[in-house]
Write a protein that binds this DNA or RNA. Structure first.
Length: 421
RNA sequence: GUGAGUGUAGCUCAGUUGGCAGAGCACUGGGUUGUGGCCCCAGUGGUCGUGGGUUCAAGUCCCAUCACUCACCCCA
């Protein structure tokens, strides 16, 4: 095979597109009920947006971005995530002036140059929600409840909500320093990766799956011990709101997220059914990002849902329902076929799904085709019927057929076919 | 970037100690003139991922290479 899709880029074929449509439609309607409005931003942005927004040191920016250069040599990057773009649009169009709270969502493809594996692709799709303008715990809770609600609506259970607080610029540096010291003492028992992390980003050691590192970190200082009073209050209050909403969560002090901009609340919705990629949604608070991107000092919180991962879970439950044509028209003979073609066009104008054969074939083969594609009714007309001013309408399930008048056939068919839908 | 596994028909896969490339599903046609699903018969469809090597002979053995998959890493 010489012409294939790019590695890590996938076709979504007709058989699976039903799940995508359902997911998007549920998301649009549910997020709408929480007051979120859709925003569509370009898939490409100037490179600096991501290097500033996501963090120069992150894996995403340092080695996973698809960047090309315009004629003047300016870097343009296929977005690796949506938040930076949405923040940019929020700042550029001064959306903060439209009202104190802005709730935005977007759906679309993201691009990261990673090695593909189960649940991980180079082009993948996210549903992304962001709320700007509120710093309090109620907005955290609202966002998280909405995320959980979304999965309920989609019909996916046995997910767990992991929750953590990373602290704020007041308290995180103290924790980071303490942790770094702690890790320095036992760097001998850490894997090579973690020895590096201990210096560059000590929080990430919590994420390591190597057993010895996990053990080394068991008695490490925990973020929560270092949270400042304001962060503790925020976190406690969030937990109360979640309790009120009946949302169960697991405290996970090791939940450290990869993007630099998070502060305070972080959360992840996880499954154990997807191999190594266990997060189906993840997000958190990023109060400093808007200002970092030259905007007003507005707090924000958001999350992203990995659509491929959600759909992988849906596919375990089987294929989505496929729709079937309402009517198949089987005509025999030139005159009848021309009439049929005309009728098909008229019926389709009123929204009825009509199929017919494109070659001039016998009735048997047309019936076969009608049966295979699942047509619920078949209109049969040939020379005999034409001469008598009648046509045959067959119900495929009931295996019954009766004659109808050609005179006002369109009206009759519309009436019969709309009744079924 | 690192490691492991897998590449045979559109799909799922057989293929013996090297000896004429197969099955099921799908698709097309037929099983008396114009009635589908089930059944029966037939047909279409393959550079056995690619390139070398060993051999009288390679889908099968050896080397290389590419692709895919999974895992590390990272994340949705």
């Amino acid at each position: 095979m010489e012409l294939t899709a790019i590695k890590g880029f996938k076709d979504i074929l007709p058989d699976e597109v039903g799940h995508w449509q359902r997911l998007e439609s549920i998301a649009r309607s549910l997020l709408g009920s929480y007051g979120f409005q859709e925003i569509k931003t370009p898939v490409m942005e100037y490179m600096e947006l991501f290097s500033r927004g996501i963090g120069q040191e992150t894996d995403i920016v340092s080695k996973e971005m698809y960047t090309l250069h315009d004629s003047r040599g300016r870097g343009m990057t296929l977005r690796p995530e949506a938040t930076a773009s949405v923040v940019r649009a929020y700042v550029q169009h001064r959306l903060d002036q439209k009202g104190p709270i802005q709730k935005l969502f977007s759906i679309g493809p993201m691009f990261r140059h990673e090695r593909p594996q189960k649940g991980r692709f180079r082009q993948f799709h996210q549903i992304n929600a962001e709320m700007f303008g509120d710093a309090g715990p109620k907005s955290d809770a609202d966002i998280i409840v909405m995320a959980v609600h979304l999965f309920e609506m989609i019909g996916i259970s046995d997910l767990t909500l992991n929750l953590n607080s990373l602290g704020c610029p007041e308290c995180r540096p103290r924790f980071r320093e303490e942790l770094s010291c702690y890790l320095k003492d036992l760097s001998g028992s850490l894997c090579p990766d973690c020895q590096r992390r201990a210096v560059t980003n000590p929080l990430r050691v919590f994420d390591c799956k190597v057993e010895s590192c996990g053990n080394a970190v068991i008695n490490a200082p925990s973020v929560v011990e270092f949270l400042c009073g304001a962060c503790v209050d925020h976190f406690e209050s969030l937990k109360e709101y979640l309790g009120d909403a009946g949302v169960e969560f697991t405290l996970n002090h090791r939940l450290v997220r990869g993007l630099d901009y998070y502060n305070r609340t972080t959360f992840e919705i996880q499954t154990n059914r997807l191999g190594a990629q266990n997060a189906v949604a993840g997000g958190g608070r990023y109060d400093g990002l808007v200002r970092l991107l030259s905007g007003p000092d507005q707090p924000a919180i958001g999350f992203a849902v990995g659509m491929e991962r959600v759909i992988a879970l849906l596919e375990e439950g089987g294929r989505s329902e496929t729709k079937t044509p309402g009517l198949f028209i089987a005509g025999m003979g030139d005159e009848a076929e021309r009439l049929c073609f005309k009728w098909a066009a008229e019926l389709r104008r009123s929204g009825i799904w009509v199929e017919m054969d494109y070659a001039q074939r016998g009735l048997k083969s047309q019936m076969k085709k009608a049966g295979r594609i699942g047509a619920r009714k078949v209109l049969i007309i040939g020379g005999d019927e034409l001469a008598r001013g009648k046509a045959l309408l067959k119900d495929m399930d009931a295996k019954e057929q009766h004659e109808i008048e050609i005179n006002n056939i369109i009206e009759i068919l519309k009436k019969v076919l709309n009744k079924n839908d």
